[in-house]
């Protein structure tokens, strides 16, 4: 029985290949090959070399030296740790708050249209514009937030210069901008839930929490998992905000792993070393996505 199933599967694959349908995949496959697979293979190759950007014709194989160096690099460790901090600060809040906002505005009404537009507007702004906007708002000397704090008699806060405040502040800005897109995805999922389910639940005497727990959440589980994976991997990939707002400082407290990799590759010109960081980073992301999917599947089972 098992062999039969496998044979049928093989036949289907062969049919797909020879029927010409595979041609439809070709454009996407070509683009992915050029812009994702090929650079990744190059990065893997370079990670075993001492490639220095200014000496492209003098590259030597160094084995696992770059990987060993990462293990002893306290700045790399700090950057990995910072990226994990960003994930801890941002992911749970972003998923919960986007779900909360989506629930609030899922129903079609004129007021909700207004709210939807308002909530979504940060997303259409460029990350650099948003970063500069918040930099002004939170400026220790002339920023509106500090002016307000001062008027209440509180001390002015160095949001981007205080090593303890800088990372949470950047996390807040990322959260503020990113929440709207996830909200939109979840809102679309919420609108797909048949209203008859809620009507039936109401007739059975279910309260709002019970409806949310037993109808809403199970119905949008797929989308929640999607949002969770996208937000987690996206948060690990943070680079522009710390680059624009603090350049990784103060004292490296906001540097993310991607920013550190970028700095090693472009500023210090150590392509071999930064490629090794890229490879480790790619494995971490694949691992996280895999674990998240596995956990959700197990729960479904």
């Amino acid at each position: 029985m098992h062999n039969l199933k496998q044979k049928m599967k093989q036949n289907k694959t062969l049919d797909f290949i020879f029927s010409g349908k595979i041609l439809f995949l070709l454009p996407a496959f070509t683009l992915i090959s050029i812009f994702v697979i090929y650079p990744l293979m190059l990065a893997v190759g370079y990670s075993f070399t001492d490639y220095y950007l200014l000496k492209p014709n003098d590259i030597s194989f160094v084995g696992f030296d770059n990987y060993m160096e990462i293990a002893y690099d306290k700045y790399a460790k700090k950057a990995f740790f910072n990226s994990a901090k960003y994930v801890i600060y941002i992911v749970p809040l972003q998923v919960i708050l986007s779900l909360f906002l989506a629930t609030l505005i899922a129903k079609k009404s004129k007021t909700n249209t207004l709210f939807r537009t308002a909530f979504f507007s940060p997303y259409i702004l460029s990350i650099i514009v948003v970063s500069l906007l918040w930099k002004n708002i939170l400026d220790p000397n002339s920023g509106i937030v500090n002016e307000f704090l001062a008027s209440l008699g509180f001390a002015k806060q160095e949001f981007f210069s205080d090593p303890n405040l800088a990372l949470p502040t950047i996390s807040f800005i990322i959260l503020w901008q990113g929440i709207s897109f996830q909200m939109l995805i979840l809102m679309a999922a919420l609108q797909d839930i048949p209203s008859s389910l809620y009507e039936a639940a109401s007739m059975e005497g279910a309260n709002a929490w019970q409806k949310f727990k037993h109808i809403t959440l199970p119905s949008i589980k797929g989308q929640v998992v999607f949002v969770l994976i996208v937000v987690t991997t996206g948060t690990f990939k943070i680079i522009i905000e710390p680059l624009v707002l603090t350049n990784g400082g103060p004292q490296g407290s906001t540097s993310s792993i991607l920013l550190y990799m970028f700095e090693q590759g472009t500023r210090y010109r150590q392509i071999g070393y930064s490629s090794a960081i890229t490879v480790i980073f790619a494995f971490i992301l694949i691992f996280i996505a895999f674990v998240q999917r596995k956990l959700v599947k197990e729960e479904e089972g």
Binding site: S161, P163, G249, P250, Q251, R267, Y268, R269
Partner: peptide, 21 residues
């Protein structure tokens, strides 16, 4: 040849002094 690192290293010291870190 490692000027960018020297620049950052001096920046680290100066920032550390400023923040009393």
């Amino acid at each position: 040849p490692i000027f960018p690192v020297l620049e950052d290293a001096l920046g680290d010291i100066m920032e550390g002094i400023a923040l009393d870190n």
